[in-house]
Design a protein around this nucleic acid. Sequence first.
DNA 1: CGACGGCTTGAGGTAAGTCAATCCACGTGG
DNA 2: CCACGTGGATTGACTTACCTCAAGCCGTCG
Lengths: 228, 228
Amino acid sequence: MLNPLTAKLEQFTRFDPSERLRLDELISEKTKHYARGQHIISVGDKIDEIHLVLDGLATRSKMLKDGSRQLMAFLVPGDLCDLEVFVLNAMDHDIVALVETKCAVISAADIEQLLTESSNLTRAFWWSTMTDSAVLREWIVNHGSRDALARIAHIVCELLIRHRIVGHTVDNTFAFPMTQDDLADATGMTTIHLNRSLKQLREDGLLEWRSKVMTVLDFERLSRVAQY
Amino acid sequence: MLNPLTAKLEQFTRFDPSERLRLDELISEKTKHYARGQHIISVGDKIDEIHLVLDGLATRSKMLKDGSRQLMAFLVPGDLCDLEVFVLNAMDHDIVALVETKCAVISAADIEQLLTESSNLTRAFWWSTMTDSAVLREWIVNHGSRDALARIAHIVCELLIRHRIVGHTVDNTFAFPMTQDDLADATGMTTIHLNRSLKQLREDGLLEWRSKVMTVLDFERLSRVAQY
DNA sequence: CGACGGCTTGAGGTAAGTCAATCCACGTGG
DNA sequence: CCACGTGGATTGACTTACCTCAAGCCGTCG
């Protein structure tokens, strides 16, 4: 069983045993637990450690002055939270645990070391940030051009695939532990409208979401609704 | 007068004369002109050259099956179009010239060379992709949490600042050569609604947009409307 | 048991979309 | 120099997706 970071990066490249070992060491050195709602990183933080989600679910989010909140990404096992602190002065958004979440904490020095010693790994990290950008662009399309049903369907499809990549699915069932409020803030709609739209997806036999577990009943049709 | 790439990257770091020279060479070797509407890069393209906007205006965009179009970013002078081709197999979106646009074309090999010879430049490029991601996140907030007036105001503020950085503003006036259709596709609303909202911003004395030139009349208030 | 957080439903309001004209600036050809 | 065509901007009338306010429900935990 691969660790989630290796599983994710091996989508892009193949590592030799020494590199795998290196990655395993890196993420097992120090871990940290966050309670639901706890900030892993806050706006303005200047940090010299990198966080990697090992277990649980976190989100990149921004609070607006009017009190509303917008989620901009979900962080699932295998995702790096804050590679940007290498080059940016301070964090421009929050990273918050949506459920009990376990992170590996890696010192910036260790990452730097790793990047200088293996260009293969450097490439893999670069690839990772590029795919993150691709997901951000997809969210823009989602919010700008799709209606409520499609937006929800799209996020469900995205998370299904991302969980599958790191081996966290059984058939089309996977952990979906966020609240409807969280999902509403992610899709940019009210909880109420989200709830009604979810009901429709349920009644159409596309998915099932009970006790923090999501089951995609008909991926074919769901992805069509999502224009995935 | 700095070239726009150097001007942009020097926001983050300072280059020594040899590095500046290197950048100047890089972008003057080969240039290419694109007509309005022409694709600089298309979905699925696998290329081994990097494009840098020198003059004009381009956009990252996706066409959806239903014929609608979503813009995901604007590319102004100094912006790299396609660093991702280094690590991604193929482009997942189009890059289209919105007006007559001039690009520098740099071979991937030259970039690789540059990156190995200067870690300062490597950092600067990395910083550039990170700030691009930050803008993408801001667009998500824009589309998810702000109404029409705020979305428009926000994009105007963003482009004002970005033009200012590369020295392409006079007071608060800068080139804004896109059509209302383009801006509507960027903000995720209909041209009609965009038009009416623009009218309101105009009548409120916040901006003026005539013959492809934008003037921000009251940045203070405009940025307040935009929650910038 | 009561309190609480999260989910669900109803009724009514509003921002934004649709469809359809009209207008205006411009470039082109007769 | 005018007639015309074209693409973009503007406006009107009507529809709709989504929001707001408000209440009720349901499971869980102290």
